[in-house]
């Protein structure tokens, strides 16, 4: 079997807080194949961003990798020195964030920063680097790239800044692009442009994209594989089509039903959105048993007592729910033909 591009194995990540160490990602495993788009979807506090930031060790000084491996092309990144990792960052693995200004230096022009990204990871110098920079800006759909080279980041709109950051990210043709809520701060119109840009770049280069989002719409547009996280754990994993057709975990079902969509026709004030009651638990005050059970409509005694394991449920599907593990119960899957196991 071929070595997957990215394989995360039993990764747990914690943070030092005033009240001691808090685990924010627990025993997370996932693999990404070449050219695939994996979406990690979850709400605030689900651990989705922390999981992605651990790949490049961008956790800050309070972050602690408690256990696990992150293998990139078979090599465990957690064993790399900071120096070795710096070579990988930006060259083999690039990351873009929700707020592009965090990646841009306000006192240098776009051109300066883009050329820096190019010369750092390739042999291109001088004129050649400049021309490549202009070419990259053109690839990401920035109009008048020559003049934007001389612009400072703050003079650009949010969408243009995100394009500039994507240009920097793809400068060295990374094999893995981590995009952490890349369109959350943008208008839907600009979001559509950026998502289309990412898809186009992926088709051209075969880059694997790990996309972190809270927005199921973005998942529906982009994902090949979806990983749903809740309170630091993976609760469900499936290919995008199956997940939306037949979500297995009550949390995923709730999320999908809570999403007001344009495709469903609604009458005037006569329908209600299904909502998930309660709130996401704080990670230092997790409920006993299944972390979702206080909000779950199907909760049973076992859910309150012990934490369910992540089990396989059909082809390439995983779910963390007692109701999927116990053959007697098929309640949440009443509509699905009961083929959970």
């Amino acid at each position: 079997m071929m070595v997957p591009l990215l394989a995360i194995d039993q990764l747990s990540v914690g943070f030092n807080t005033d009240n001691g160490e808090v685990t924010v990602v627990e025993s997370l495993s996932l693999t990404a194949k070449e050219g695939e788009t994996i979406c990690i979807v979850g709400e605030s506090g689900s651990g989705k961003s922390v999981a992605s930031q651990s790949i490049l060790r961008l956790l800050g000084e309070n972050g602690i990798i408690q256990q696990g491996e992150i293998r990139f092309k078979g090599d465990n990144l957690l064993n790399k020195s900071e120096k070795e990792l710096r070579l990988i960052r930006g060259r083999d693995i690039a990351i873009i964030f929700q707020e592009p200004m965090t990646a841009l230096n306000p006192v240098f022009t776009v051109g300066h920063q883009l050329r820096e990204a190019i010369t750092l990871h390739s042999k291109r110098k001088g004129r050649e680097a400049t021309e490549y920079a202009i070419d990259l800006l053109r690839q990401v759909g920035i109009p008048r790239p020559e003049s934007v080279m001389r612009d400072y980041p703050h003079t650009l709109s949010g969408g243009m800044r995100q394009r500039a950051v994507i240009a920097m990210a793809i400068a060295s043709k990374p094999q893995l692009l981590i995009a952490d809520e890349p369109t959350t701060a943008l208008d839907v119109t600009v979001q559509a442009q950026i998502l289309q840009l990412l898809k186009g770049l992926q088709e051209g280069s075969g880059t694997t994209i790990l996309l972190i989002t809270h927005d199921l719409g973005v998942v529906a547009e982009m994902a090949d594989t979806v990983v749903v996280m809740y309170a630091g754990q993976i609760v469900e994993q499936a290919d995008a089509g199956s997940l939306f057709d037949r979500p297995l975990h009550p949390y995923t079902q709730g999320l999908i039903h809570a999403m007001p969509s344009l495709q469903t026709r609604t009458g005037v004030n006569d329908e209600r959105l299904e909502s998930i009651p309660g709130t996401v638990p704080a990670l230092n005050r997790l409920p006993q048993g299944c972390r979702f059970h206080p909000r779950c409509a199907y909760s049973q005694d076992i859910c309150k007592q012990s934490s369910p394991p992540l089990v396989t449920a059909g082809d390439n599907r995983l779910v963390r729910c007692w109701l999927a593990s116990l053959p007697t119960s098929s309640e949440p899957y009443a509509t699905s033909g009961g083929q959970a196991l």
Partner: peptide, 13 residues
Amino acid sequence: LLEANPVSHPRLR
């Protein structure tokens, strides 16, 4: 503007 809104199911891509 409506078309820019993300789809609600991968099948509608």
